[in-house]
Design a protein around this nucleic acid. Structure first.
Lengths: 204, 204
DNA sequence: ACCTGAACACCGTTCAAGT
DNA sequence: ACCTGAACACCGTTCAAGT
């Protein structure tokens, strides 16, 4: 069945199938996507350059869904809203995180949201030299807590005796609730820290 | 050359070859390790259970090299020393990070260092329910900034016009120096935030 | 323009065979 | 006990052939 009159594939259909795979926690790959679409792996190469481009397609797709194109309010509201949006995104699609980690970001929607953040920080009075550094901090924060969500329920498996860790691992909440509490506490620290930093900057 | 009188392999030699591969940024895998050791891939399975166990071997190896078995000082000194140790570890072996991310930690040395941290926090007066949450924050911080080191030099590649990001990406420092500055700033925020949190706890 | 099928160079893992 | 070599079920990617 070569060259159907109406195309079987498109970047959208490929991205959609890829996201389904990722959300179900299935192993992600070109072959698996092709299987899900009832098509041969080589067919995909008529629409995308390869595996990496499919990952970037997913990043963009989620960016459109979750990241606000504009935010009203002071710089700290922008930071908070953006981090909460990323948090929701990662919480609802945790398995995407290991795939996008360490890949150059090119998707326009996602670039635009980093730009929004950088513009807000710059406008608030953070020196140019500090802005990208702060964006890096925010990113580390976001990715770090995102990975916390993607982690196995059992992060530590002590096989030797411990004085504190073992006891806590037994008794403490696991999974999403613990991670959410940690995120909230971390977010508060981060915002306080940034406000303090801006106040110090303004003293100069 | 089957069954040499003195074994060609051992977990140590395997871990060593694996680390060499990772540090050189070469693709990591069972086959590549075997090639480097001048041996058949299947030989490795006489010493390790598979790829995942080799990754955990590397984690343990680095833990022994970098993580202090004990730290003198107050809880915040413990936190700072531990994070700096992890930072050095990740900075000198950035390509390991994507491999260990999201894998259950079993290595005794690494478990012991998390235990050290948990014991210090618990002894300082942080409530039991908060300790693992804080450890999760520290971990997110550490991994987040570690990944920042493992990232490509070019994190963002704007292909559409931006108001602020593009300009900053052109002019700002890249790579390790930017990441180091961000780490230091983040560490300070984190420690201030935790001290504040403890002070609040002690008011109750 | 868009899909198939064969082919290529890889993976990680298992297992019988050899000493 | 420890290594080899063949085998298996996968990968991602390329490319000629077909309409």
């Amino acid at each position: 069945m070569p060259r159907p009159r109406t195309p079987l594939l498109s970047t959208e259909r490929i991205a959609e199938a890829a996201m389904e795979l990722v959300d179900e926690g299935e192993p992600f790959g070109v072959n698996a996507i092709a299987r899900r679409l009832g098509v041969t792996p080589s067919s995909l190469y008529n629409h995308v350059a390869g595996r990496d481009e499919i990952v970037e397609l997913m990043r963009g797709r989620l960016g459109e869904q979750y990241l606000p194109p504009a935010i009203e309010g002071t710089w700290d509201v922008v930071v908070e809203e953006m981090l909460r949006a990323e948090r929701r995104m990662y919480a609802e699609h945790p398995f995407l995180i290991p795939l996008i980690v360490g890949k150059t970001i090119t998707d326009p929607t996602v670039i635009a949201s980093y730009d929004l953040l950088a513009t807000a920080l710059s406008g608030a009075g953070f020196p140019d030299d500090d802005v990208l550094e702060i964006v890096a901090i925010l990113d580390a924060f976001s990715i770090g807590f995102g990975l916390d969500l993607a982690s196995p329920d059992e992060i530590w498996r002590p096989e030797t005796p411990t004085t504190t860790l073992g006891r806590l691992v037994e008794s403490s909440p696991r999974g999403a609730p613990r991670s959410d509490r940690a995120f909230e506490a971390g977010l508060e620290m981060l915002l306080d820290g940034l406000r303090l930093r801006l106040a110090r900057t303004e003293l100069d």
